[in-house]
């Protein structure tokens, strides 16, 4: 579509497009409606439980500012292609752990 559409042409194009969209939209909506027999995936984030009790998550001191990082593949990002990056996309740097 040209940027130099006259207002009339734009009106005509819009009328055609809206008409087509109206015909197409209910079909698309019906497709999406078929996939809805799962429950509610989102959780409530406020509760009054205690988390991991006496695990060390709240007390451990880790520091990513160190300079002795090593590369560690970790999650699904390893599977993504990396055509441009020499180190490869999806490479994570390991946290350096300090003793607290």
């Amino acid at each position: 579509m040209s940027q130099n559409l006259s207002r009339q042409a734009s009106a005509a194009a819009l009328a055609l497009a809206l008409g087509a969209a109206l015909v197409a939209a209910p079909a698309a909506a019906a497709d999406a409606a078929k996939e809805k027999c799962y429950g509610v995936a989102m959780k409530g984030k406020n509760d009054c439980k205690a988390g991991a009790g006496t695990s060390c998550a709240g007390t451990s001191v880790r520091d990513h500012q160190g300079n002795a990082w090593s590369y560690v593949p970790a999650g699904t990002c390893e599977k993504t292609a990396s055509p441009t990056s020499p180190t490869g996309m999806g490479q994570l740097k390991e946290f350096k752990e300090k003793k607290a």
Binding site: K49, A50, G51, G53, T54
Partner: peptide
């Protein structure tokens, strides 16, 4: 609740609702 121990080995119960 969940079970843990304090530094003297006495029970320290955690209200985990789990």
């Amino acid at each position: 609740f969940a079970h843990a121990l304090d530094s003297r080995g006495a029970p320290l119960l955690i209200d985990s609702h789990g």
